[in-house]
Amino acid sequence: MQTEIIISGFGGQGTLYAGQLLAYAAMDEGKQVTWIPSYGPEMRGGTANCTVVISDEEIGSPTVLYPKAVLAMNLPSLDKYEPLMATGGILIVNESMVNRVPTRKDIRAIMVPANTIAQELGNERVSNMVMMGALLKALPLLPEGAIERALAAHTAERHKRLMGTNIEALKKGMAYA
């Protein structure tokens, strides 16, 4: 079994970090995993995305044309990846940053007002975790609690104070899926 997830948004929305966290959680669960960012001038242009592949066997390509899951943190990401998604895939859309709903009927789309929820939690920067919560609920990639354990294990000491909010954000996101 192999699943490919693309997490895409503006720089500063925590897309790369969200992908890394997912990769850590997968690694800690003994899975094969790759994390690969888009890099270079594209990033200076303001978009940041990464592809995470999680698998039970040696991973071939670290990038895919037709991902199984997409976290679209903003409108350009929705526009770019909706048409590319694999049939039956899961598309989590940050409702706070788009002005339309997905149109494809052969995928499962979940709208999550991630920024609004993050603001309610008192920190807009956890919108990525809200989205991640929805993804993990909709797509049982990892055993329950894996992402929380990864958060605890791989958060630098100086960022630990945000952990509670991150976990709250994951929970809120799960409720949408």
Partner: peptide
């Protein structure tokens, strides 16, 4: 891509 990629 191998330079930029993270893997365990």
């Amino acid at each position: 891509s191998l330079g930029q990629m993270m893997e365990p």
